[in-house]
Amino acid sequence: MRRIVLGFFVVLFVGAFTALGVWQVQRLAWKTDLIARVDARVHAPAVPAPTNWDAVTRQTDEYRHVRVSGHFLNADESQVYTLSELGAGYWVMTPLKTDDGRIVYINRGFVTEDKKAPKTRPQGQLDGEVTVTGLLRMPEVKGWLFQQPNDPAQDMWYRRDVQQMANAHHLGPVAPYFIDADAGAVPGGWPKGGLTVIRFPNSHLQYAITWFSLALLLAGASIWMTWFRKPEDGEDSI
């Protein structure tokens, strides 16, 4: 009876570890395909930003290289606190109004803490028609663990929730995405674009090896205990 019970649990755990290994192999294939698709989007020539907003999804459109033309609504700029490779500072989120009246938020780039106020970088507050190229990003509606929530009443922003920003500035409906501007020369040097971080952790192969190794070790130990190990004096055989 004891041998049957132990055998049952060995089979159960070997099966579970193997299933987890297979799942990680499947995740590895999915992640590898995702990385390839995103890399192709990022390095493709810029295409017009989507105007059929209802059709935009994270899966099909995020990190697509796009372009849009219009006029910046500099008076409605918001600054979102961030930690970047240049240190602590802010993303400059500026709504852009196209010729057909649509509004798309542009993440114009990073400014240091002493450049938060637009008056400290007047040359970068572009007037007239501009054309922006960059990567399409989805709004940050949910924050990370321990991240402070946005405080529209105090004009304090910690995540790039574009509709919430638009509501605070009474802009009405805006595109359900924003565009991270490409790097480029800006009068006065600020904001600095082209700082999008694209990083997809891909440890699924290591996880798969770990699960398969556990399954193999458990199966091997069970076989050795059952068939090759000799019980010592006074010890029951499994």
Results as ranks from 00 to 15, higher is better:
M1K: 14
M1V: 15
I4H: 14
V5W: 04
L6R: 08
F9S: 10
L12A: 04
G15C: 04
A16Q: 02
T18I: 00
A19W: 09
Q26P: 04
K31E: 09
K31C: 07
K31R: 08
T32L: 05
L34M: 11
R37Y: 05
V42Q: 15
V42D: 09
H43F: 14
H43Q: 13
H43M: 07
P50F: 13
W53C: 11
D54Q: 13
Q59W: 13
Q59Y: 15
T60Q: 15
H65M: 02
V68G: 00
S69Y: 10
G70C: 08
A75L: 10
D76N: 14
E77K: 07
S78G: 14
V80H: 02
Y81A: 07
T82L: 12
S84L: 07
G87M: 04
A88Q: 14
A88H: 12
A88L: 14
G89C: 04
V92M: 10
V92W: 04
P95N: 01
P95H: 10
L96S: 00
L96R: 01
K97M: 13
R102S: 06
V104K: 03
Y105K: 00
R108L: 14
R108T: 00
G109I: 04
F110R: 08
F110T: 00
T112G: 08
E113S: 15
D114T: 14
D114E: 12
P118W: 11
K119S: 15
P122V: 03
P122M: 09
P122Y: 06
G128K: 04
G128P: 03
G134M: 05
L135Q: 09
L135R: 06
L136Y: 01
R137C: 01
M138T: 00
M138E: 07
P139A: 05
W144H: 15
L145G: 13
L145M: 12
F146Y: 09
F146D: 08
Q147P: 00
D151T: 10
P152C: 02
A153K: 09
D155Y: 05
M156C: 10
W157A: 04
W157L: 02
R159D: 02
R160N: 05
V162G: 07
M165S: 06
H169Q: 15
L171C: 02
G172K: 09
G172Y: 03
V174P: 00
A175H: 11
D180N: 05
D180Q: 13
D182C: 00
A183K: 01
G184Q: 02
G188H: 02
G193W: 03
L195F: 03
I198Y: 06
P201C: 05
N202L: 10
S203V: 13
I209Y: 03
T210Y: 12
W211G: 12
L214F: 15
L216K: 08
L216Q: 07
L217G: 13
L217F: 15
L217V: 15
L218N: 01
L218P: 06
A221M: 15
A221S: 02
S222C: 06
S222K: 01
T226E: 06
R229L: 02
K230V: 12
E232K: 12
E232N: 13
D233L: 08
S237Q: 15
